[in-house]
Design a protein around this nucleic acid. Structure first.
Length: 818
RNA sequence: GCCGAUGUGGUGGAAUUGGUAGACACGCUGGAUUCAAAAUCCAGUUCCUUCGCGGGAGUGACGGUUCGACCCCGUCCAUCGGUACCA
């Protein structure tokens, strides 16, 4: 019998599509299970990361379906984004055309991999029927005051005359032009995610099914801290306000650092060449946090002094390149003795370092580095001897009385800038009127459709040069006005797609009751790359709350359980074209079939860890698939079509008992591995062990064949979420009339699990000295006796004194001697 | 820099709640089958020591807790992800 995986796989896929196996509707009689994988960006063709992501999602979906649940597994396309624009420049193809062609090809690949999607729910975020609803929601939020406009910096390439993404800035230069990138201020829209900061933080506690690491990262990202806002007054000028979480160090402040765009800095620069030159040099700087933190810290003294709020002593104001106007107040108080960055800056510019905190029981040593821990105050006048907590309240009370400070809760989280000066994105539905200001596009005029038939050359966005797009009438006064030509951050689309799958055909509303059904308690399982642990997941949580507050949803959190999968590596590093270490999934599918590829990618590593690709490993997986094929086919020829579906359980011999025990212990393990543990690699290892046992079990008496028939059916069912095509085929070949995908997960036979003999290990002083075979549930005293009788054990005890004996029932005896 | 992970044989990995380190697989070695090969099957495969039984060492490094540590704690090293305009 030839193993023709191509025919087998095509026929199974045809069966699922024709029978609409994975198309679902709301059904209140069944428990729902919404299994969602992060949708792909249609970059051209699937890469191994996609294959891994979707194989995991598919195993979970198919498994849950066999448990009898109403399983929704949708898929779609995160279709707006930068790569389409880059491709457009390179190939002179409009981004829309490129995107649609990619979607078409990649959809074929998903079908070929056998993923069980409800294709009727497929969506692409670049379709107006999709993005009209995020435009609609935006106008609602606009009216609610959750959207505002403010100036913010972008990376400006002065040669290409275009805004660059952070990844397009390499060593401070534009990736294409090589020009030094400048910071440029542009008026942009922001969403008040900080209004939800407390709830986003609090509700992390509700995410019981999320990895602790992701929850920690989100908590730290939101970064709630309690501190003091302090005013440093300057004669004849506005005071400088700073925020600090360490008011106990206030007496150690030796200078103030302000941003180069701070109003005071700009004022001073007007008649000071040195300072204006410094400010100018700050303009060619990367905006990313990583670049900011690692660059050389530079500053310039202004000669302007402010008053210390407690002592009234003069404190010099410096302009520093590491303070940003956009975040916080644009100014920080500097305590070099107790902050490492301030310490290094002070050493560099010979500024005073004044220690005011010391460890509880010793003197402070700041000869080499700052002392950043909390301790006891000294040299702080009336605050001497206070600890952090006492100092916090006394100092804040003192400042409060002087009206120079107030207690403030601060978040690291900043409002979400959603404007992009790009073409291939969702148009921001705003009209700018000379007389009425910025107004949301009225609901009846939505969607604002992005023109798709454009020529794209990379110099600015085409719609910024299209009067037919941007000329319009003001919805309020009716006079000629200009439409907004910026588009949304593409995180916008991916922040709510999980809800739209439930009702993508709704043309009269964003969501309806079907979304409430599928999102009850959230998506049951979300699967995607760990690289989305902060931004995407935070924005999606935010959007869920926005939609809830709009009355569209009832759940507080979008994703009940989260599985973050690791990357697929080749030769120890991420696959990339530049490294030339890519593996094309298509090639592998053509050569070995989808089942083999799925099996390998699930077997090679646990899902949350990075996975090292191996062509040889893939061949090993292919051998296993063939082994299954041979096992079932040789069984079919052994039985010659006769019925072996009944087992006589009364007189099983030891070998038969052992096989049934193996079948059911494997079933128990695989069920747990697929369900609770999401440990697909160990589930597959167990299935390989069972297969090896069945291959060796070659008895051909009637009852043995019946036992084998039972075993093979269970084996195929357990394998079917992982390698669905061959299991579909072989299950049918065995004479089953029902398709395996429609059957239920097998039930464990508890009797088969019972073993009469077990192995117990014996240690002496924690070192393994013997393994003894004995009955189950022996008394401790009996176990102890058996252990002592062992020759090797008694050799190691010899005439030493036995201090104690530790016994773990049915597992271990540890004899401690002296 | 900061936040979060990860580190186990020649390789990918297993050890689920602190209780046999190396399951399963790849590779390699030897054997069976074959005219020969492929495929398949069987045996072996952490390192050192021993004819063998056995013994010693060993989970990135160093230290700690414990009868017992890959697992818990501390310090450090390396690699990876995120760092707000890649998705």
């Amino acid at each position: 019998m030839e193993f023709d995986f191509k025919t087998i796989e095509e026929s199974a896929q045809k069966y699922w599509l024709e029978n609409k196996t994975f198309n679902v509707e709301e059904d209140t009689k069944k428990e729902k299970f919404y299994c969602l994988s992060m949708f792909p960006y249609p970059s051209g063709k699937l890469h191994m990361g996609h294959v891994r992501n979707y194989s995991i999602g598919d195993v979970i979906s198919r498994f849950q379906k066999m448990l009898g649940k109403n399983v929704l597994q949708p898929i779609g396309w995160d279709a707006f984004g930068l790569p389409a624009e880059n491709a457009a420049i390179q190939n002179k193809v409009p981004p829309a055309k490129w995107t649609y062609e990619n979607i078409n090809y990649m959809k074929g690949q998903l079908v070929e991999l056998g993923f069980g999607y409800d294709w009727e729910r497929e969506l692409a975020t670049c379709h107006p029927e999709y993005y009209r609803w995020e435009q609609w929601l935006f106008t609602k939020l606009f009216e609610k005051g959750l959207v505002y406009k403010k100036d913010a910096e972008v990376n400006w390439d002065p040669v290409d005359q275009t805004v660059l993404a952070n990844e397009q800035v390499i060593d401070g230069r534009g990736w294409r032009s090589g020009a030094l990138v400048e910071k440029k201020k542009i008026s942009q829209y922001f969403m008040r995610i900080t209004d939800y900061a407390d709830e986003l933080l609090q509700d992390i506690n509700k995410l019981k099914g999320w990895p602790e690491a992701v929850k920690l990262m989100q908590t730290n990202w939101i970064g709630k801290s309690k501190g003091l806002e302090v005013d440093f007054t300057i004669e004849g000028k506005n005071p400088i306000t700073v925020f600090t979480t360490r008011p106990d160090t206030l007496m150690g402040v030796t200078y103030l650092a302000i941003a180069s765009e701070h109003p005071l800095a700009i004022e001073i620069a007007q008649n000071n060449d040195k300072i204006s030159a410094f400010i100018e040099s700050c303009k060619t700087m990367e905006t990313s946090e990583a670049a900011m933190e690692t660059m050389e810290k530079k500053g310039v003294a202004t000669g302007v002094y402010c008053d210390h709020p407690i002592t009234g002593k003069p404190i010099e104001v410096w302009i520093a390149n590491f303070v940003l106007m956009g975040y916080g107040t644009g100014a920080v108080m500097s305590v070099p003795a107790h902050d490492q960055r301030d310490y290094e800056f002070a050493k560099k510019y010979n500024i005073d370092i004044k220690p005011v905190i010391k460890p509880k029981d010793s003197d402070v040593d700041i000869s080499k580095e700052a002392f950043t821990e909390k301790g006891v105050l000294f040299d702080s006048g009336e605050f001497d001897e206070l600890n952090f907590k006492e100092a916090f309240s006394k100092i804040s009370a003192s400042l409060l009385a002087k009206k120079l400070g107030k207690i403030k809760t601060n978040f690291r989280l900043r409002d979400w800038g959603v404007s992009r000066q790009r073409y291939w994105g969702c148009p921001i539905p705003v009209i700018n009127c000379e007389f009425c200001g910025s107004l949301p596009v009225p609901e009846k005029d939505l969607p604002v459709i992005l023109p798709e038939d454009v020529s794209f050359d990379g110099v600015g966005s085409p719609i910024k040069q299209m009067p037919e797009f941007y000329n319009c009438d003001c919805p309020s006064c009716g006079k000629p006005a200009k439409r907004e030509t910026d588009t949304f951050d593409t995180f916008f689309e991916s922040s709510w797609y999980f809800a739209r799958y439930a009702c993508k055909d709704n043309t009269s509303g964003m969501l309806d009751d079907r979304a409430k059904y599928w999102l009850k308690n959230g998506v049951d399982q979300y699967v995607g790359g760990v690289e989305h642990a902060i931004l995407h997941l935070l924005y999606a949580r935010f959007f869920n709350k926005l939609m809830r507050d709009e009355g569209l949803l009832e759940n507080d959190e979008p994703f009940k359980n989260l599985l973050t999968q690791g990357m697929v590596l080749k030769d120890g590093s991420k696959m990339s074209k530049s490294k030339g270490n890519t593996v094309d999934p298509q090639e592998m599918i053509s050569k070995y079939g989808a089942d083999t590829v799925r099996l390998f990618i699930l077997f090679a590593a646990p899902p949350t860890q990075d996975l090292e690709w191996s062509d040889q490993g893939l061949e090993g997986s292919h051998r296993f698939v063939q082994k299954i094929f041979r096992l079932v086919n040789s069984f079919i020829s052994d039985t010659n079509g006769a019925d072996f579906s009944h087992i006589d359980l009364t007189g099983l011999n030891a070998v038969q008992k052992e096989i049934r025990n193996k079948v059911y212990t494997t079933l128990e393990k695989v069920s747990d591995d697929l369900d609770r543990r999401h440990s697909f690699n160990t589930a597959i290892a167990a299935l390989m062990e069972l297969t090896n046992s069945l291959v060796r079990f070659d008895k051909t008496d009637a009852n043995s064949l019946s036992i084998k028939y039972e075993a093979i059916n269970i084996l195929l069912k357990m394998l079917s979420p992982i390698t669905p095509h061959i299991c579909h085929h072989l299950f049918k070949e065995l004479g089953n009339t029902e398709a395996i995908v429609d059957t239920f997960w097998p039930k464990v036979d508890k009797i088969a699990l019972v073993k009469d003999e077990i192995e117990v290990v014996v240690q002496v002083n924690g070192k393994l000295r013997a393994k003894i075979s004995c009955g189950v549930n022996l008394e401790n005293s009996e176990l102890e006796k058996l252990a002592m009788q062992d020759d090797n054990v008694s050799r190691f005890i010899s005439d030493n004194e036995i201090v104690k004996i530790i016994i773990v029932p049915n597992k271990l005896v540890n004899i401690v001697v002296k």
